[in-house]
Simulated scan of single mutants.
Amino acid sequence: MHPQHPGDEPTWAALSPREKALAAVGMTGLGLGVLALVAAAVLLGVLTIGYLSRDLIEADGAGPLIWAALLFLPCGLLAGAFAYPVRLALRLVLASPKAKRRAETALSAGTTFLAALFVETLTPGLHVQHPWLPALLATLLIALAHLATNHLEARTHRSHNHP
Rank of each mutant, 00 (worst) to 15 (best):
H2Y: 03
Q4L: 08
Q4W: 00
Q4V: 07
D8N: 03
E9R: 00
E9G: 02
T11S: 08
T11K: 09
W12T: 04
W12H: 03
W12M: 06
A13P: 00
A14K: 01
L15T: 04
S16F: 00
S16A: 08
E19V: 04
A21V: 09
A21Q: 11
L22V: 09
A24G: 09
V25W: 04
G26L: 07
M27T: 08
T28S: 11
T28F: 06
T28D: 02
T28Y: 01
L30H: 01
L30D: 00
L30V: 04
V34D: 00
L35H: 02
L35D: 02
L35M: 06
A36S: 10
L37M: 04
L37H: 01
V38G: 00
A39G: 03
A39Y: 05
A41D: 02
V42S: 01
V42F: 02
L43R: 09
L43K: 04
V46K: 00
L47S: 06
L47C: 06
T48E: 13
Y51K: 13
S53K: 10
R54F: 10
R54H: 15
R54I: 06
R54C: 07
D55W: 14
D55M: 14
I57V: 13
I57T: 06
I57S: 08
I57P: 02
A59C: 12
A59D: 11
G61M: 10
G63H: 08
P64A: 09
L65D: 03
L65G: 04
L65Y: 14
W67M: 13
W67I: 05
A68Q: 04
A68D: 03
A69W: 07
A69H: 07
L70I: 12
L70E: 08
P74N: 03
G76M: 04
L78Q: 09
A81I: 10
A81G: 12
A81Q: 07
F82P: 09
F82A: 15
A83W: 11
A83R: 13
Y84G: 03
Y84E: 12
Y84Q: 14
V86A: 15
V86K: 11
A89G: 14
L90Q: 15
R91E: 14
R91P: 03
R91F: 10
V93S: 12
V93E: 11
L94F: 13
L94D: 07
L94Q: 13
L94K: 11
A95C: 09
R101M: 14
R101K: 15
R102C: 10
R102W: 14
E104A: 14
T105M: 10
A109Q: 06
T111P: 03
F113G: 05
L114N: 08
L114K: 10
A116L: 05
F118V: 09
V119E: 08
E120S: 09
T121A: 14
T121Y: 11
T121D: 04
T121Q: 13
T123N: 10
T123L: 11
T123S: 10
P124W: 07
G125P: 06
V128Y: 09
V128D: 11
P131Q: 02
P131N: 05
W132Q: 01
L133Y: 10
P134G: 12
L136Y: 01
A138F: 08
T139F: 05
T139G: 04
L140T: 06
A143E: 05
A143T: 05
A145P: 02
A145T: 01
A145D: 00
H146I: 07
T149I: 05
E153N: 05
E153G: 02
A154L: 12
R155W: 11
T156G: 02
R158S: 12
R158C: 07
S159C: 04
H160K: 13
N161W: 13
P163I: 12
